[in-house]
């Protein structure tokens, strides 16, 4: 089983969080999985880790529609932060609104991190979603 050191799940829907956690179990082993209800909480935690030189998450599962700070706003803040670490961000949404897809593609161009777009429902998390591709090959 490939290991990922730290994963953030940012989503206000407990069922989705449950699903992601369950699916993660079958692809990787990770001791540090953190759950956040909205972008603000996740950002605050990330900032705290960055400032105190703690492990920055390798992978972030990010919902778009959340209270207080939504997925887009979180991305904006993260781009400004310009972390040197390699991060994979998987945007998970039930939206099939083409506008959201366009927005994602414009973010992808200016985001220093890997930015994936995944439509719900998801049934399986791939190793590539966790950046484990090179180790598998």
């Amino acid at each position: 089983m490939k290991k990922v050191s730290c994963i953030f799940i940012v989503d206000d829907d407990p069922i989705t969080v449950f699903g992601i956690k369950k699916m993660l179990k079958s692809v990787t082993k990770c001791d540090d999985v953190q759950i956040f209800q909205n972008g603000k909480e996740a950002y605050d935690a990330l900032l705290e880790r960055h400032e105190s030189n703690k492990t920055i998450p390798d992978v972030i599962f990010l919902d778009i529609n959340m209270p207080i700070m939504d997925g887009w706003d979180f991305l904006d803040e993260l781009i400004i932060l310009d972390l040197k670490e390699h991060i994979i961000i998987n945007m998970i949404t039930s939206s099939i609104d083409p506008l959201d897809h366009q927005k994602w593609s414009s973010f992808k161009d200016r985001c220093p991190y890997i930015l994936n777009f995944k439509n719900k429902p998801i049934f399986k998390i791939e190793a590539t979603d966790l950046g484990l591709m090179d180790m598998a090959s």
């Binding site: 829907d13 069922i15 699903g19 369950k22 039930s94 939206s95 609104d97 719900k120 429902p121 049934f123």
Partner: peptide, 22 residues
């Protein structure tokens, strides 16, 4: 409205699909 239909309703049905698959 389109957004509600595309997002809010879909999110529930997506959850159903996922949970049923599990």
């Amino acid at each position: 409205f389109a957004h509600i239909v595309s997002h809010n309703l879909r999110s529930h049905s997506a959850n159903f699909s996922m949970l049923l698959e599990f």
